[in-house]
Design a binder for these strands. Sequence first.
DNA 1: TAATAACCTACTGTTTTAGTCAATTATTAT
DNA 2: ATAATAATTGACTAAAACAGTAGGTTATTA
Lengths: 156, 156
Amino acid sequence: MRLTTKGRFAVTAMLDIALYEADKPVTLAGISERQSISLSYLEQLFSRLRKQGLVSSVRGPGGGYRIAKAHHDISVSDIITAVDEQIDATQCGGNENCHDEGRCMTHELWASLNGKILEYLSGVSLADMVDMQRNKGAGTVVFSPKKCGSEATIAA
Amino acid sequence: MRLTTKGRFAVTAMLDIALYEADKPVTLAGISERQSISLSYLEQLFSRLRKQGLVSSVRGPGGGYRIAKAHHDISVSDIITAVDEQIDATQCGGNENCHDEGRCMTHELWASLNGKILEYLSGVSLADMVDMQRNKGAGTVVFSPKKCGSEATIAA
DNA sequence: TAATAACCTACTGTTTTAGTCAATTATTAT
DNA sequence: ATAATAATTGACTAAAACAGTAGGTTATTA
């Protein structure tokens, strides 16, 4: 998988909108200032976020961006995949470059890891992040994992 | 975190040794052939694996590499950190580049994800991989996670 | 009609990845 | 002794990805 500043900035920016959006949409210039992220870089990111339907835009003065869905319907993995365009740890996509028979020896390991990461990131929603941010300094916050006991089962 | 072919090749190579090591140590040339990994690239990787004490080397004819510890005492995360020299998803290491107050808004999220990944990768040992590889085609293999219900608890 | 702000495309410097190449050192078999 | 083997070391490199910059266009509102 790929976890870069692109994904990190995207999550930060989405959280920023979720926190500051009220009657008016939030401008990229505002996000840029508050989070110290380059405006042009934000534009690139939001081009993708908009195409994936995560945000909606309003042009002209007083315009900006809004979160396009309910906050608990957007997961961190949604945001990262929107800007990073792949969240895959296998690299041997479909038993391509493993010269022997089919998939490489460690294929199942990476596929399983991939599942773990995705399971976690898709279990944290924008709403969770907002709650966490608001409760900061107020004690302890717990990320709630969806369910328990989901072993990585591999069929040979 | 950083998950590249470097780490993948290292795990594959270690597994190869674990499978083929008997009375004789295993040569890099042999690994190179079986796993189609460049010999020179393997040399770089094993330089680090040796410095981390994961393998021991024997020079000269009949020489090669051996796994230096018990197979169940080497985890996948040990191997990856040995060659990749960082397994960190935060990037703001110690509240450096967050201009406001201390750590950035999403710091806890990445730290928590980091913990998840590390928890999983350190729970899979070389011995597990060997078992899995030997049991291949014999049905279903399950990676045993250490324990259950380990929520990501974040103190604000 | 002027300001605002999204939108789009192309370009760029730096770092990382994934190696290659060439030489050296230690060990064993002949 | 010496030749072959195999680890060990260090420097170098092409290509890709990352992290932006720059400059312009379009739509909307005051």
